[in-house]
Design a protein around this nucleic acid. Structure first.
Ligand SMILES: [Zn+2]
Ligand SMILES: [Zn+2]
Ligand SMILES: [Zn+2]
Ligand SMILES: [Zn+2]
Lengths: 160, 160
DNA sequence: CTTGACTCTTTAGTTGCTACAGGGTTTCCA
DNA sequence: TGGAAACCCTGTAGCAACTAAAGAGTCAAG
């Protein structure tokens, strides 16, 4: 099938498929005479795998690891379990952070019950107060389920 | 004070301060003869405000709105309250999504109690299964506390 | 006077896509 | 058979909120 059919079959955008190929998650395919990519069932399954993982908020790096095991069926899958445990940890950590944020935000919200002039708004005044570095996320400013705190390897020279 | 001192005083990186200036969150300062930025107490307070908001995972856009009210003390602060309520909604929505993910991930994890060969790993096999579009985040793949779900336009109306 | 700490601007990298622009190819239908 | 529509290709830029580095200038201490 052509890329558009694969896209429809898996609910993925065409550009995303090409992006995954560039990133090495999907293999380069054979092409038609007109230089169109041609996919088979195996590609569709692999792409479903990737999208399923993404829907669970795994990073492409995490998915890359899982794919390596999928490609080596004789390997012991212990590392897969470990990766999943870690990722569950990522999600749990983010939930804790967000719950803390939610508490702080609700406390802040209570500082202004009825609208008045901005100069006396309890919210604006509290936000301007210095210090009060809330005990929440030490790493701070994490996105999604994945903190910047997580080790940052040089992915640069992985390109071949 | 110079930019490094402001950075230390507020626990912000120097580059971040310059970035906020470029983005219009901090005003352009006067400069010394040697072209160094010079800051006063007002700048420190404004930067603290911004960082405080960021630590609550607000976007720079949300912060921009709050700053407009801080800069107009005579305005009625009702919009501030509304913005905060909305943002609390952003956080709450993300928490719900992540809790759903956590449940799914734990269910997945249970499919492989003890490590075996990858070909028979319940986790890998389940991830490869198609469909099963979990009932969680419809928009999917939201980051931080802010979902793509907000103002996500139909991509299909590309046709003319 | 030299060293080193600091600052300046500009540019590029991060993540996971998404959206063009500016072409080429295939398919459909009259 | 011709021409339009629908598809595909590569390459590049943009999103958020920074972070880092290159290459150069400025300043204070010893
Ligand atoms: Zn993870
Ligand atoms: Zn108020
Ligand atoms: Zn928000
Ligand atoms: Zn297993």
């Amino acid at each position: 099938m052509k890329i558009g059919e694969l896209a429809k079959a898996t609910g993925t955008q065409v550009e995303t498929i090409r992006y995954y190929e560039r990133e090495g998650l999907l293999p380069e395919t054979t092409r038609t005479e007109g230089n169109y990519r041609i996919y088979g069932e195996a590609h569709a399954e692999r792409l479903s795998f990737i999208r399923h993982c993404r829907s669970l908020d795994m990073t492409l790096e995490e998915i890359r690891v899982l794919l390596r095991f999928k490609d080596a069926p004789n390997e012991n899958c212990g590392e897969v379990n470990a990766l999943l445990d870690e990722h569950i940890g990522h999600v749990a950590a983010r939930i804790r952070e967000l719950r803390s944020l939610e508490r702080q935000l609700k406390g802040l919200r209570d500082l202004c019950q009825e609208a008045r002039d901005a100069a006396h708004c309890g919210i604006l005044n509290e936000l301007a107060r210095q210090g009060s570095e809330g005990g929440s996320s030490a790493a701070g400013h994490v996105h999604g389920a994945h903190g910047r705190s997580v080790e940052r390897k040089s992915i640069k020279d992985k390109r071949k």
